[in-house]
Amino acid sequence: MVAGETSGDLLASRLLSGLRPHLPDAALHGIGGPKMAEYGFESFWPMDKLAVNGLFEVLAHYRELKGIQIALRDRLLREKPDVFIGVDAPDFNFGLETQLNHAGIPTVHFIGPSIWAWRGGRIKKIKRSGSHMLVVFPFEEAIYHQAGIPATYVGHPLAQVIPMVPDVAAARQALALPVDARVVAIMPGSRMSELKYNTVSFVGAAKLLAQRDPGLRFIAPMVGEKQRRLFMELITEAGLQDVQIQLIDGQSHTAMAAADAVLVASGTASLEVALYKKPMVIAYKMMGATYQIMRHLSYQSWIGLPNILAREFLVPELIQHAATPEALAEALWKQLDDVPHQIMLRERFTAMHHTLLRDTANESAQVVLKIIEQRARK
C-alpha cells in the first residue's frame, strides 16, 4: 500500500480495519502513516516524503519522489505481492500501478482523483493503470464505468468515522475549552506547502476577528512537530505572534467538533468539517504559476468538496488573491453570526452524511479479497 499524506493514512486505516480480520497473518507494507501502523503496516519511507502538492512544487522534489517510486517498484516486482493498493496520491501511485499491473500484480486504487472537477484527461491514465477503482462519491461509479474502468462505490470512510451528531461538550472538555465560548478552528493545511501559503492569511483573519470579538477562542491542530515549527516561524515573521491561538497536537477531529466555525484549506478537511455539520469558509493559496495553470484546467465552479457535492456554494470559497485576511475574516464572521444559515447547513450536511454512509471498511475489503482470490485461481 502507498498513502501519501495524513488524510490518506486515515482512509487507508479504515480499509485495513475491514481487511485485517480476513488476513490476520498478511504482511502489509509500502508507504504509510501511524494509523496504518496500528494494523501492523510497515512503512519503508516516511509518509511525508510524498506530501507535496502543486505542479511546480512537485517539480522541485521530482528527483527524490522518482527515486522512491523506482526503488519501491523494484522491490515490489521482486516480491510480487498478492495486491497493491494505492491510496489517493494519484501522481505517485498511478504510474506505479501501471508498471505493477503490466507485471501481473493486481492493483486497486482507493479514492479516485477528482476527474469530474478538473484534468478530465487523467481518466486515460487511470485506464492504462488497469486498477480497480474504489470510489467514495455515489456519482463517480458511473463515470468510471462509462470509460471502461472497473469501479465500486464503497461510501466515504470518513462518514463512518465521524458521528452523525458530534459531541461538542466532550470535545471542548478534551481541549480544555469553555463550554460557552465561541470557538473558531484555524486549519491552513497539513502539508508544508499548504502551511507556507495559507498560514499568514488565516492567522491574519483570526487577528481581525479577535478585534471584532475579544471573547473568541482560536484553536489550530498541527499534524506534527515540523508543521508546528513552520506555523510559528511564519506567524512570527509576519508579526502575528501576539494572536492568541491554542495549538493542538493532532486531534483535528476533536478541534472540528469543538468549533462553532472553521477556516479550512480546500481538500479532504473541508469534507470532514461538513460531516461535523460546521459552518466554514474554504480558502486556498498556492504558488502563482501553479494557480494560473490549474485555473485554466478547472471546468466547474467549485473547489471545495462540500460545494461540489451540493452543486452550489453552500459555504464561501476564497482562492488565491481573494483569500486576504480581511475577506476571510468578513466571510467567517457571517458564518458565525447567521443562525438561520447555520441551521440550513446542519440540515444539508446531515443529508450529505447519510448519502456517503456505507460500511466502507467491509465493502472495500471485500473487493480487495475478491481480487486476491481471482489472482490465486490463475
Rank of each mutant, 00 (worst) to 15 (best):
T6W: 11
D9K: 07
L10C: 06
L15F: 07
P24G: 15
D25W: 12
M36T: 11
A37S: 15
A37R: 13
Y39Q: 14
Y39T: 09
A51P: 10
F56C: 09
L65V: 02
G67Y: 00
I70D: 10
R78A: 07
E79T: 11
V83T: 05
D88N: 09
D88V: 12
L96D: 05
N101D: 13
G104Q: 01
P106W: 01
T107K: 03
V108F: 02
H109E: 02
W118Y: 10
R122A: 08
K124C: 05
H145L: 12
A147D: 06
I149P: 02
G155W: 00
I162N: 08
I162Y: 06
M164T: 13
D167R: 02
V168H: 06
A169P: 05
R172Q: 00
A176H: 11
P178H: 05
A181N: 04
V183E: 06
I186H: 01
S190E: 00
R191L: 00
R191N: 02
E194V: 00
E194A: 06
E194R: 03
L195Q: 00
Y197L: 07
K207C: 01
V223Y: 04
K226N: 15
F231Y: 15
F231E: 07
I235R: 13
E237Y: 06
G239S: 06
Q241V: 01
V243N: 02
Q246M: 07
Q246P: 02
L247E: 02
Q251C: 09
H253D: 14
A261M: 14
V262M: 08
G267V: 02
V281W: 10
V281M: 09
M286T: 13
Y291V: 07
Q292K: 10
Q292Y: 10
L297S: 08
L297D: 01
L309H: 03
R311F: 04
E312A: 14
A323P: 08
A327N: 13
K334P: 09
R346I: 12
H354W: 13
E363A: 11
E363Y: 01
S364F: 01
L369M: 02
Q374F: 11
